[in-house]
Design a protein around this nucleic acid. Structure first.
Length: 270
DNA sequence: TTCTTAACCTGGAGGC
DNA sequence: TGCCTCCAGGTTAAGA
């Protein structure tokens, strides 16, 4: 499930690999995975990629033409640059480049590519709604503390709201709450200033660690080269319900918070 | 305004 | 072995 670290890893790789590559053709195998928003498919032909960037979980691909791509991988999407597309299944769209192919594969078909005029990226509604970037200087405990005042929803659900913190998903919400020693079920508005500071620092730590490990792979995530991430071996709680806590040895508890599977330690998290 | 729940979708796991 | 059911989860919309 690609969250901020996985999307960041993909962007860094594709930014190196795609720059200067020119689109020669587009093959769409699943129309709902390829949207045209004020641009035509023909606008892409001949356009060369100039930059691959990220905002939250969105990938923004700029070109030297008046057209850009916005990609959201949702749960099982992957953006892969390859010279041999034959091993890949569930490919929904293929951009044929002058050197290789850029594949969009997606098993559950929730994500997709949007093609739009370059100037429309700045006003793209989904991007405008996003909250602060966890790895930016503007993100800190004060920000979390201020936004959470008066909120009765569980802090886990609060963290998953993309208009608050852009890029956090189920994995890193659980991991950050463990590092900060906060239960996922605690009401967001009950966070003290000290806890908010600890949570902000924990979010940044788990994100940076995961990026350093190439992201977290369970079933579907692959980086821009189709490789798996290694951070799964460093997870403290996510996916470990019923197993012993790595810190205190107590059995980790698995619960549903806001409809999402959540794992925490009843001893280490208060 | 805030919160909860369902829907979208498909592959894998587990039960019978 | 085959069939059925449940689960996974990012985002949005509907309803309370």
């Amino acid at each position: 499930m690609p969250e901020l670290p996985e999307v960041e890893v993909i962007c860094r790789q594709l930014n190196e690999q795609l720059r200067g590559k020119r689109v020669q053709g587009v093959e769409v195998y699943l129309p709902k995975s390829f949207h045209l928003a004020g641009a035509k498919e023909a606008d892409l032909i001949g356009a060369a990629f100039t930059k691959v960037a990220r905002r939250g979980k969105y990938i923004i691909i700029e070109t030297d033409s008046n057209v850009a791509l916005i990609v959201h991988l949702r749960m099982t999407g992957a953006l892969i640059y390859t010279h041999d597309a034959s091993p890949y299944t569930h490919v929904r769209t293929c951009l044929h480049l002058d050197d290789g192919d850029l594949l969009y594969k997606d098993v559950r078909t929730f994500g997709g590519i949007t093609v739009l005029p370059a100037q429309a990226v700045a006003t793209y509604p989904a991007l405008q709604k996003l909250g602060r970037e966890p790895l930016s200087e503007a993100f800190n405990g004060d920000y979390l503390y201020r936004l959470s005042r008066g909120r009765t929803i569980p802090v886990k659900s609060f963290l998953l709201q993309q208009d608050k913190v852009a890029g956090i998903g189920n994995i890193y919400a659980d991991e950050a709450l463990f590092v900060a020693g906060i239960r996922p079920t605690k009401a967001a508005g009950k966070l003290t200033k000290k806890a908010a500071n600890a949570l902000a620092a924990a979010i940044q730590k788990v994100m940076r660690d995961s990026i350093a490990h190439g992201g977290t792979s369970f079933r579907d995530y692959r980086d821009g080269n189709g490789r798996r991430g290694e951070h799964v071996h460093y997870l403290q709680v996510y996916g470990r319900g019923g197993e012993p806590c790595r810190r205190c040895g107590k059995v980790l508890k698995k619960v549903k918070v806001g409809g999402r599977a959540s794992v925490y330690c009843t001893h280490c998290q208060k």
